[in-house]
Amino acid sequence: HPLQYRWALWFFKNDRSRAWQDNLHLVAKVNTVEDFWAMYSHVKLASKLSSGCDYALFKDGIEPMWEDNRNKRGGRWLVSLAKQQRHIELDRLWLETLLCLIGESFEEYNREVCGAVVNIRTKGDKIAVWTSEAENQAGVLHIGHVYKERLGLSSKTIIGYQAHADTAAKSNSLAKNKFVV
């Protein structure tokens, strides 16, 4: 069962003695439903990674960093998790995110999606869907609405979209939300 796109899974392990890019490793590329599950079942669950590690699933040809041409004008829908959610929700939310991507859940705006990242952090884990054009309000909002619904977040939960350019300009990672749903 072929996927619409070929996807690459990346693993980031924080080693402060090395440059950021040297800590980023390509794990595998998949372009069928079957290969996706083979890859997913082969790697550790996100909740089992140590702090400072990330997984990223991106379309083949797009690197999981702001500097990539397909990312630099884009941004991310960010879901910030409370510490206790690692044990009860993180793996479900990350898998749901992956299924949204490979299943092409965002309809006419699937092309806007670049990938998704999960950050494992002591102070609270984060999951984000990255899109390519922060100024494309219709596309960004559609993706945000669908994504929030697929994650099963309550209407009281607000998730925000931040442009990478704004995030990069902030040292404390508290960039302002360009959109919220």
Binding site: E34, L99, S105, N110
Partner: peptide
């Protein structure tokens, strides 16, 4: 055509043995 798969369809493949 576009290859869209809903979550239930994708999940059905999760524990299928790989074809050899």
């Amino acid at each position: 055509g576009k290859k869209q798969y809903d979550r239930e369809f994708l999940l059905d493949f999760q524990f299928m043995p790989a074809c050899i």
